[in-house]
């Protein structure tokens, strides 16, 4: 019961996400994307800024509604779920946001324990925050140990460095006991050496827990060396979807070429 046996399976069918574009013509952040991500798979989303990586991730965890098309998580269509069902699906998907999005003036333990909010009622969650059980604390401590900062358990989160905060965000996602882990540009908040560590850690964690892993990355080298499958996005469309060996330099360069260049 504590660990789902396999990760989530994601299927996107003809997904379009249209933004109003601030008074101008509507912009399609995603424009007819169809793809499937199998349980336990590790996928890197690559592409320039504005290519739709973040939008795609926010579709997978049910925080953006598609303007058209369907998103299936383990067979259930996110656009057709009741609020309660949607909450359960969200609780099963851990996300490490680009800006980490931790509550800055809570203790690290509280931020980690907040990962379980999706499965708790209101009163139970308040109790967990104010008077965590020994079991909760053990679990939070073990997760922090796993990501390498156990001694920060009771520190205030805003006193931590960027790299440490990122690890707290990962621990929070893991405390969800998720079936999938999503990470949006996990390298943007840390220096290059730590970036490598962070991506490696995400990969290891998802492998040892059987989680589906989807990570958006600017850095092509990191994407190539850690992920068996790369999805290149450009202008809201899938430019390529292949193992790194089959994606050559020319394909990468085409991905980043300026549209009007």
């Amino acid at each position: 019961m504590s660990q789902p046996p396999t990760g989530s399976r994601f299927v996107l069918e003809g997904v379009v996400v249209r933004h109003d574009g601030g008074g101008g013509a509507p912009i399609n952040a995603l424009d007819g994307v169809a793809l499937a991500i199998e349980p336990g798979e590790a996928v890197a989303l690559v592409g320039p800024s504005g290519s739709g990586k973040t939008t795609l991730l926010s579709l997978l965890n049910g925080s953006t509604r598609p303007s058209a098309g369907r998103i299936l998580v383990d067979g259930s269509d996110l656009t057709e779920l009741s609020p309660r069902q949607l909450r359960l699906v969200r609780a099963s998907i851990g996300t490490v946001h680009q800006d980490l999005a931790l509550v800055p003036n809570l203790r690290v333990s509280q931020n980690v324990l907040s990962g379980r909010l999706g499965r708790l009622g209101f009163l139970a969650s308040v109790r967990t925050m104010l008077w965590p059980s020994a079991e909760d604390l053990r679990s939070a401590h073990a997760l922090l140990e796993r990501v390498g900062i156990p001694e920060k358990l009771f520190e205030r989160t805003d006193r931590l460095s960027g790299g440490e905060r990122q690890r707290v965000a990962i621990a929070r996602a893991l405390h969800q006991q998720p079936a999938a882990l999503l990470a949006d540009e996990p390298v943007s908040s840390v220096d290059p050496a730590r970036a490598r560590d962070a991506v490696g850690l995400l990969r290891e964690l998802s492998r040892e827990r059987g989680l589906t892993l989807v990570v958006s990355l600017h850095n092509l080298d990191l994407a190539r060396s850690f992920f068996p499958r790369l999805i290149g996005l450009r202008g809201g469309r899938v430019a390529f979807d292949a193992p790194p060996a089959e994606v050559d330099e020319a394909a990468f360069e085409a991905l980043y070429e300026l549209a009007d260049g």
């Binding site: 203790r107 020994a134 604390l137 053990r138 401590h141 156990p150 001694e151 358990l153 009771f154 520190e155 205030r156 006193r159």
Partner: peptide, 10 residues
């Protein structure tokens, strides 16, 4: 260890 960290918390 958790008890030690708690006693020395800021």
């Amino acid at each position: 260890e958790i008890g030690r960290l708690w006693r020395s918390r800021p």
